[in-house]
Design a protein around this nucleic acid. Sequence first.
DNA 1: TAATTGCTCCCTCAATTTCGGTATTTACAA
DNA 2: TTGTAAATACCGAAATTGAGGGAGCAATTA
Lengths: 214, 214
Amino acid sequence: MEPKTKVCIFEDNRHLRESLELLLQVSDGFECVGAYANCNDLLEVISENDAAICLMDIEMPGINGIEATKIIKSKFPKIHVLIQTVFSNDDSIFQAICAGASGYLLKTTPPELYVEALRDIQSGGAPMTPSIAKRVLQLFKVNLQPTSDATYQLTDKEKQVLQQLTLGKSYKMIADELQISLETIKTHMKNIYTKLHVHSGPEAVAKAIQERLV
Amino acid sequence: MEPKTKVCIFEDNRHLRESLELLLQVSDGFECVGAYANCNDLLEVISENDAAICLMDIEMPGINGIEATKIIKSKFPKIHVLIQTVFSNDDSIFQAICAGASGYLLKTTPPELYVEALRDIQSGGAPMTPSIAKRVLQLFKVNLQPTSDATYQLTDKEKQVLQQLTLGKSYKMIADELQISLETIKTHMKNIYTKLHVHSGPEAVAKAIQERLV
DNA sequence: TAATTGCTCCCTCAATTTCGGTATTTACAA
DNA sequence: TTGTAAATACCGAAATTGAGGGAGCAATTA
């Protein structure tokens, strides 16, 4: 029989914690090596129980699940953390991702999907409910999109020059790179400044990067 | 009996296309209002068939699925596009997200999950396979995280000056803002350049923004 | 054909930035 | 006490940039 994957549980609700424990016991391929109501002795317990995956509630007294995830990932980067929570607000999703969570389930997820999610993690995936995935995409897009792009009506050459500038090149280097005269670069820069309504290189770079013009 | 959700299919592989069509026919709550091998008459067909969801292959002759998604979302933002593809490389995922796809399935997904994914979309979710979700998270994090921060050992004042610079301020304006001499700003800038290993304002700003030092 | 747009190049000049120094004060730690 | 780090400030020269002007050429459009 193949070795079972060790899972430990952090969940303050006793009823749920015990249900999850039971679920793991009856599952194929997983075993519960610990179930805790809080993260007070976090590092000790996970270095003792040698878990490969932690099932982590967010809302807990003391150290919350996000903090716990950060701690775990900083000390044991290989351990996967599967976040489970009743809430699905953008901020906690965002923070969980940044903390290094491998997946994110809502507590409304039916038990059989918990086991499936654990399997997904084992095979390198990042299970999340579609509603969470939706929010991640939205977060992703706001962080990515504003790209007014067309707004400024930069020509191709102007975009090229701006692109080079954001790489930290000087006028001279850009001229060299694009095989055109330094004077032409100056002309392009003047036009770029006019179109972007800026008055210096740093300002142009800041605007270009922040609005993803390049 | 409740109205069925109209779905149309864009898929160049005839066999798969017909399978999907059949799948929709036998499903509860969905009906296929069109199945096409390419996107040549994209806008005509979707304004005719009044689909709520498009099942979209990426690899197609002529207009590909990403382009098609952009077109659809720009003309009919309310239509959901569910991408399905054999490939799962970062670039196509990234582009699909930017194009406004509502979900992203691999063709290895079993048929019953296709219907489930359609239901997820209907209820406002963004279905994706765990492996896709994993990549999205990774994309998300590289775009977000590197924050080496401590690496450069910038002092508080230096960070402040750099911050102002990314706002497009000139030395003089920064001096004024921080209530210190222009000469001091020059000193700070010199130190910032040394620490960041850059040689100009634009380069410093680019590095600061990209590595989220400010 | 005439007008416009994008790309190219040149000139001048003032302002700003970059880089090389030096130096003082404060604060904190060895 | 001595040493170090941070913040402050100044000088000066060399280099770069920013803003103003003008102007030619090719391609496109009206």
